[in-house]
């Protein structure tokens, strides 16, 4: 296939692709740059690109004034906890669907996906009510459970597609070798599926990290993660661009890095195998 492309054409494509890439990325770049400016430089006209005095002051202020680390910790607990819990529930289910498929397996899989498509706002009040009853409002455990349930269909689905690629004969061999079901999953399936399980976890941490309906509506001061932390900048702090930028950079940096690792799995995880 590899046809020789003229250098000229390649150069033009390169220029176009980089320009578009830069343009799309620019808001993020601009946010990061602004976070190192003083407030005055941040709103300077004409805008300053690189020629400004770099300062870390905004970061210090953000941490001091709004206790960034507490929100970060909440985000970590909520995103990590919900994903791990979901994975633990999903691995056995995905095992069953991939290796002991029955007549109903397909229906169950599709039904699980369909629960992902329920609009959250439709069940906001019942969840709210249940949370009040159980004393879960503004608690991390409550959000861990809700986000786990939100993402469980995606986790099951992704694991299912990865497990499907493992030949069933290997698991049968383990069974012949005297492994119990627990040993079969623990010593044979899980180690073989490590790459798939890792990508599943990664993508779902990202989804949970950025979830901004339940996290905004079910938390207040105590359990609020970074989504809520940023929302609190909507006014009037939002007018302090440098600080807003610093806060934003802090909120997106961890996940941006994870995201870049998981970009290959994104398609698989979000299209449920409908696009290969």
């Amino acid at each position: 296939m590899a046809r020789r492309v003229s250098t000229r054409r390649k150069a033009i494509t390169t220029l176009a692709a980089w320009s578009v890439g830069f343009l799309i990325f620019f808001p993020i770049l601009w946010t990061v740059l602004t976070s190192f400016k003083t407030e005055a430089q941040a709103i300077a006209d004409p805008p300053l690109f690189l020629g400004f005095d770099w300062t870390l002051e905004n970061y210090a202020v953000v941490q001091e004034r709004s206790d960034y680390l507490r929100f970060l910790w909440n985000s970590v607990i909520i995103a990590g906890g919900s994903t791990l819990l979901g994975t633990m529930v999903a691995i056995p289910a995905a095992w069953a669907m991939a290796f002991v498929p029955g007549k109903k397996t397909k229906d169950i899989l599709l039904w699980m996906l369909s629960t992902k498509m329920l609009p959250a706002v439709g069940v906001l009040y019942p969840i709210y009510l249940i949370f009040i009853q159980l004393g879960l409002l503004d608690s991390r455990i409550g959000l861990v459970v809700v986000l786990m349930l939100c993402n469980l269909p995606i986790i099951v689905w992704m694991l299912y597609t990865y497990f499907k690629e493992i030949p069933g004969e290997i698991l049968e061999a383990a069974r012949m070798d005297g492994a119990t079901l627990r040993e079969e999953i623990l010593y044979v399936l899980t180690p073989m599926a490590v790459p798939g399980i890792a990508s599943t976890i990664l993508l779902n941490i990202i989804l949970a990290w950025n979830e901004a309906f339940w996290t905004l509506n079910l938390t207040a001061a105590k359990a609020a993660p970074l989504t809520a932390f940023i929302a609190s900048y909507s006014s009037p702090e939002g007018l302090f661009y440098a600080k807003l930028s610093a806060a934003s950079t802090l909120a997106i940096a961890p996940i941006l890095i994870l995201g870049w690792f998981s970009q290959k799995q994104l398609v698989r995880g979000l299209t449920f195998g409908a696009v290969k």
Partner: peptide, 15 residues
């Protein structure tokens, strides 16, 4: 090109 997808909605909206 992919980066914006990983930005949390509250951040992109405010920025």
């Amino acid at each position: 090109v992919i980066a914006p997808f990983f930005v949390m909605p509250t951040v992109s909206a405010l920025v």
